[in-house]
Design a protein around this nucleic acid. Structure first.
Lengths: 147, 147
DNA sequence: ATAACTGCAAATCATTTGCAGGGGC
DNA sequence: GCCCCTGCAAATGATTTGCAGTTAT
């Protein structure tokens, strides 16, 4: 859950920057912020710009190669694992870890034992297209939306 | 879900601004943004500042009187219903509606029929305190955290 | 060749914060 | 009377974008 790609395919070019950014997201443990990716990429390509990192994280997420995690914090995080799984965030330090994919209430209990968290609750949000938008213009056009 | 209050109680004073802001959140259909609340409050109290609206939305959420919804969008939204329920967001227009509280996968199917949405997926994030933070300093002090 | 892509810097934009005065309790 | 609360304005900070030059395909 994260990249709900709607984009009309455009040729995507694998530049050194893009490749390095993808690797960085995959290599960094946890779920890096754009800045953390930037720091890491700079070790290899000292001249990349933060703007490029943002642009590529967005594109990689839309291509389904990574996940963009936008829930519950002001800073977005990225995840090299594009398959469905959920997260566990610490209210104090902001740490973000993977959570086992189970039913929410069962999982909440399991989490305390398994990972030593004190779990207060969870955020659940469904994402889709509303009837009004479905009725109006067709799927064409923009693609980049929301958030 | 939403207000995971951790705050040490401080006396909370019901000023006209705070009262009006609370009413606005309750009255506005859907799930207003801070700006929408501001607009509405201004009709009654033309001199309120946007800063005051933000401060009070935060406090009301921490008191558990409203919910602060921070998932999946750059603009936070607020919800006059403080009890547990989930949401359904449109990728195109950003509309945010209530979703029935069921198991995610069942709910996804139900949503298409019930509300006419085309549902792509869902965001699920657990929120709590990680072992490191639990180990370190006790619960004392700040209260205001994360995001 | 020709889009896509990049670096750079400036722009956005929601949200937060410092401050000095004001008003609930 | 105390301290919480307010309006105002400035600050913050993550993310985005315009532009002119570069490069992958």
């Amino acid at each position: 859950m994260g990249g709900f790609a709607l984009r009309h395919k455009r040729p995507i070019r694998m530049t050194p920057q893009r490749t390095t950014i993808l690797e960085a997201v995959r290599q960094i443990h946890g779920h890096p912020t754009a800045d953390e990716v930037y720091e890491r990429v700079r070790r290899v390509l000292p001249r990349v710009s933060l703007g490029t990192v943002y642009r590529n994280l967005e594109i990689l997420a839309q291509e389904g190669m990574i996940q963009k995690i936008e829930s519950g914090a002001s800073q977005k995080r990225y995840d090299g694992n594009p398959s469905a799984h959920h997260h566990l965030r610490c209210l104090r330090c902001g740490r973000l870890e993977d959570a086992p994919l189970k039913r929410p209430l069962e999982a909440m209990e399991a989490l305390a034992e398994t990972q030593g968290y004190e779990v207060f609750g969870f955020l659940l949000e469904f994402v889709g297209i509303c009837p009004a938008c479905l009725g109006g213009e067709d799927s064409g056009g923009n693609g980049r939306r929301s958030n």
